[in-house]
Design a protein around this nucleic acid. Sequence first.
DNA 1: CTGAAAGCGCTTACAG
DNA 2: CTGAAAGCGCTTACAG
Lengths: 344, 344
Amino acid sequence: MDSSTNGVKPGRATLATIAEAAGVSIATVSKVVNGRQDVSPGTRAMVEDLLRQHYYTGRGGSRQPCVEVVFAGPLAAYSNEVMEGVLQAAAEPGVAIMLSKGRIGSTPTAWALGVAKAGRSAVISVSNEMAEEDATALARAGVPLVVIDPLTPAGADVISVGSTNYFGGISAAEHLLSLGHTRLAYLGGGADAGCNQARWQGFRSTLEAAGHPVTPDRVRHGTFRYAWGVAGGEQLLALESPPTAVFAGSDEIALGLIEACRRRGVRVPEDLSVVGFDDTQLAEICSPPLTVVRQPLREMGSVALRTALRLAAGAAVDSHHVELATSLVVRASSAPPSSSARVP
Amino acid sequence: MDSSTNGVKPGRATLATIAEAAGVSIATVSKVVNGRQDVSPGTRAMVEDLLRQHYYTGRGGSRQPCVEVVFAGPLAAYSNEVMEGVLQAAAEPGVAIMLSKGRIGSTPTAWALGVAKAGRSAVISVSNEMAEEDATALARAGVPLVVIDPLTPAGADVISVGSTNYFGGISAAEHLLSLGHTRLAYLGGGADAGCNQARWQGFRSTLEAAGHPVTPDRVRHGTFRYAWGVAGGEQLLALESPPTAVFAGSDEIALGLIEACRRRGVRVPEDLSVVGFDDTQLAEICSPPLTVVRQPLREMGSVALRTALRLAAGAAVDSHHVELATSLVVRASSAPPSSSARVP
DNA sequence: CTGAAAGCGCTTACAG
DNA sequence: CTGAAAGCGCTTACAG
């Protein structure tokens, strides 16, 4: 059954179209559209369904389509990469991109209805803790949602775009092993974040298989931010037997770790190798430039936008979770362990 | 004469309102609104004027107000600070923020008319080379424009927001002089950029007055980007008598310079002090953290948004160029010159 | 809770 | 190039 063409007539739907399909008067449909109270719940639900099925847009017809991109946290190097991808994919079809910080101080339902009323074709939520209720409210308001790099493993009915985090962890481990490191550590992001867990498990399993397991004191989870990189980095460097190489859960964490090293006089990469994750602008710009597991953030943004537009057009989506490939980018922050470290 | 209330009736203007004021039929006004060709140029001009004076918005009335923020270049740490300020100021009045890369591949007029037709209340252009024609086209389309950190000195009829660049240059010079440096250099951004010139002149004049003028070989202008920081930095470090301290025209340039130092084994701040300009996230996050002249980018974004909304509401603006204060933030990239450098 | 009917804002084919 | 007139999509006060 193809629900996308299920009894929908060609041409823009008007109130009359919906009224006929619903077997009610135009006046009643108008009331539903305007959220008036004097409509029975049953009638309202049926009419709302039909409005959606017929892509009812109101007199204005379709204004310029607009997709809202929601960043819950502060804008950072990470968000820039994603936005560049989104903007690039939006340019050709002429879609407007709205930036927001998401629902703040209103109920999920009110927010979602506002988004729908403002005419957003879809919402892209980036790497944040969009609550279950918000996603549900959007769905009820008929606004498609695509999540980039979801913190929680993709729920059954949430469309998401991510990258091969587990494989990324493996490639970080293989790189550091190949340089000759045996005392390795993981300085991770949010303990609950699905992507963080995947990175860690990939890293861990590879090192275990190689006979150099990560000891419990050399694993720390915190947040994906710089401040945690400094704090967690200091903890790792203060260990009795500190690591000779650290895999960080994000570029920001890696930079914090490098700052912790500077404060202690630990040289990167001579005394400590550091591998980051993301490959944002930070990785190229910092000193030394960061060896990283690259996540194709721009492409993820582009894919998210194209997926959002397909959903907005009522098309079915093949896959509920698209996963793009990570790759290792070797720069100057990783090197073989110094001889003193290699020969304990 | 108060043109903002000049004969404008209260309540939303309709085609009938305009038709009456213009002394033409409703049909003619409708044609003008829809850009039809069968209207004489004189009638069209008069009706367009009246539409603007009456804030004609069409049936939909005023949708959610939306301001378009244009970044011509790549999104970077700089743009994030500005955007945070814009978003913050937009949250309370409930204004939507659209992000774009500006006019690409269309004529200024077509672009400006598209912006107007899409219902943008105003445009904020950030630190880019928005051509004279684009600004003029926007004005003709009746869309207010605010420029942040304009590259060219504020034109008579462009509203802009900036910071005290000249004073920033002075404070960088004073800071480095007070540390005991006498061999100083300027690694600047775009030679033509007004803000770059102001930074340089403030720096230069202070050093001249102190009896430690910047020699011509220690002044380089390029771009505001990282890549130039590396290239220009290498030129400065290769001088026969290299500087002991460098004032960089942006944070990105400063980071490039630090990378150039790393490649040559020059230590920051032991062998070379570096002062950046902007105080983006990069300055806090890099290693060593950057001493910078802080530009209040968030506040500049907020001020730009509020100004844009005032213009969109038809209010007059007190000042055509608002200038916010810079301040020195001392971190770890500046220190007294090493003894070998101090005693030549 | 529903809809017939009046009426608003707008568009457009067509006569002049 | 202009406008009278027909008509569309929508809303709403009101009768049932």
